[in-house]
Simulated assay, not measured.
Amino acid sequence: MRARRRRTARTARTEPWHPYAWQAQSLLLAYPDDRLPAHRALARRAATALPPAVAGPLLDFAARTEHVPADDLAAAYVATFDHRKRCCPYLTYYAHGDTRKRGIALLRLKQTYAAAGWRLSDDELPDHLAVVLEFAAAEPATGHRLLTEHRAGLELLRLALRDDGSPWAALLDSVTATLPPLAGDEHQAVARLAAQGPPEEQVGLAPYPPEQPVPDSAGGPR
């Protein structure tokens, strides 16, 4: 009975405000281009309908970055997310590293998107946190499940950004506030990942094996 109660408590549950939170978080976690002021304004409007634990970090990020020169913010984004593995925004990396298992996980994500009528552009990987959040905003039940499956990796990313004093740490605070708390086994996963890092290369990264073609699908988020 104890195990059943635990599984029930951790069943993914979406709230009416989840899509607004995930869309705002997605926009702010994307590369900070000339659309960022409009995205900050949208996040501020969305925050009025969100719980304090979700809204507060969004507002903190908006305030902290509002007066940072655009070039400086873009350079900080690249230095943080592109040059530091511990701040990797690609969620499957935390579970699989650069291994064939990660390639399979990427394929499954892309198939999940395709089943919902989504097609990514050629320069997008399906496990980038901003992409997963954008999908979750449009497909809340499936998106909630995907985010929850990567709960340990999200926590490790949140802690890494916080240790670096990064403004994007606030956005991870907001994201994790939309998800169930870490369970015991996920705490152990976070500790293992922090101590050992993601799995090392096994046989090479093969994101989309030719023997398992990604289903073609019309339409998409863009």
Rank of each mutant, 00 (worst) to 15 (best):
residue 164 D to E: 14
residue 31 Y to A: 02
residue 214 V to T: 15
residue 153 G to P: 08
residue 171 L to C: 04
residue 28 L to Q: 01
residue 136 A to C: 10
residue 173 D to E: 12
residue 213 P to C: 07
residue 217 S to N: 02
residue 119 R to H: 11
residue 192 R to N: 03
residue 165 G to H: 07
residue 69 P to F: 13
residue 217 S to A: 15
residue 108 R to F: 11
residue 60 D to W: 05
residue 116 A to H: 15
residue 74 A to C: 08
residue 124 E to I: 08
residue 176 T to W: 02
residue 43 A to H: 08
residue 64 R to N: 03
residue 31 Y to R: 01
residue 116 A to R: 12
residue 27 L to P: 00
residue 133 L to A: 09
residue 211 E to R: 11
residue 107 L to T: 15
residue 31 Y to D: 01
residue 130 A to K: 13
residue 119 R to C: 00
residue 3 A to L: 06
residue 136 A to K: 09
residue 127 D to A: 00
residue 202 Q to S: 12
residue 39 H to G: 02
residue 59 L to T: 15
residue 82 D to T: 14
residue 5 R to E: 15
residue 164 D to L: 15
residue 151 R to H: 13
residue 212 Q to T: 14
residue 165 G to C: 13
residue 205 L to W: 04
residue 110 K to A: 07
residue 79 A to H: 05
residue 67 H to R: 15
residue 34 D to N: 08
residue 31 Y to N: 01
residue 25 Q to P: 00
residue 80 T to P: 07
residue 114 A to T: 09
residue 73 L to V: 01
residue 41 A to K: 03
residue 7 R to H: 03
residue 50 L to N: 07
residue 50 L to D: 06
residue 210 P to C: 02
residue 152 A to N: 09
residue 145 R to I: 12
residue 67 H to E: 11
residue 21 A to Q: 12
residue 111 Q to K: 14
residue 95 A to V: 00
residue 65 T to Q: 04
residue 146 L to C: 03
residue 101 K to Q: 14
residue 5 R to G: 05
residue 47 A to S: 10
residue 208 Y to C: 11
residue 13 R to D: 14
residue 44 R to A: 15
residue 6 R to E: 15
residue 10 R to G: 06
residue 50 L to F: 03
residue 142 T to M: 05
residue 40 R to W: 07
residue 57 P to S: 08
residue 85 K to C: 08
residue 11 T to I: 10
residue 42 L to F: 14
residue 143 G to E: 10
residue 154 L to P: 08
residue 68 V to H: 12
residue 164 D to Q: 13
residue 10 R to H: 13
residue 130 A to M: 07
residue 93 Y to D: 09
residue 217 S to Y: 03
residue 187 H to N: 08
residue 82 D to M: 02
residue 85 K to R: 15
residue 50 L to P: 03
residue 64 R to Q: 07
residue 89 P to H: 08
residue 76 A to W: 01
residue 219 G to M: 12
residue 23 Q to T: 05
residue 118 W to C: 05
residue 17 W to Q: 10
residue 118 W to S: 00
residue 137 A to Q: 04
residue 109 L to I: 00
residue 193 L to E: 10
residue 70 A to H: 02
residue 9 A to P: 02
residue 203 V to C: 12
residue 59 L to I: 14
residue 29 L to M: 14
residue 123 D to T: 14
residue 195 A to E: 05
residue 166 S to Y: 02
residue 131 V to Q: 05
residue 7 R to G: 02
residue 134 E to I: 07
residue 155 E to F: 11
residue 80 T to M: 01
residue 104 I to Q: 10
residue 183 A to N: 07
residue 173 D to C: 05
residue 186 E to D: 06
residue 10 R to D: 12
residue 149 E to I: 02
residue 43 A to N: 11
residue 144 H to V: 03
residue 71 D to K: 05
residue 177 A to H: 03
residue 106 L to M: 11
residue 94 Y to V: 08
residue 5 R to A: 14
residue 24 A to Y: 06
residue 152 A to V: 12
residue 43 A to C: 09
residue 14 T to E: 11
residue 179 L to M: 04
residue 46 A to G: 01
residue 149 E to M: 01
residue 110 K to W: 00
residue 134 E to D: 13
residue 96 H to K: 04
residue 83 H to Q: 03
residue 209 P to Q: 00
residue 24 A to Q: 06
residue 53 A to R: 12
residue 25 Q to H: 06
residue 193 L to A: 10
residue 112 T to M: 00
residue 127 D to W: 11
residue 32 P to R: 01
residue 2 R to S: 04
residue 57 P to M: 10
residue 70 A to L: 04
residue 15 E to N: 07
residue 110 K to R: 14
residue 30 A to N: 06
residue 182 L to E: 00
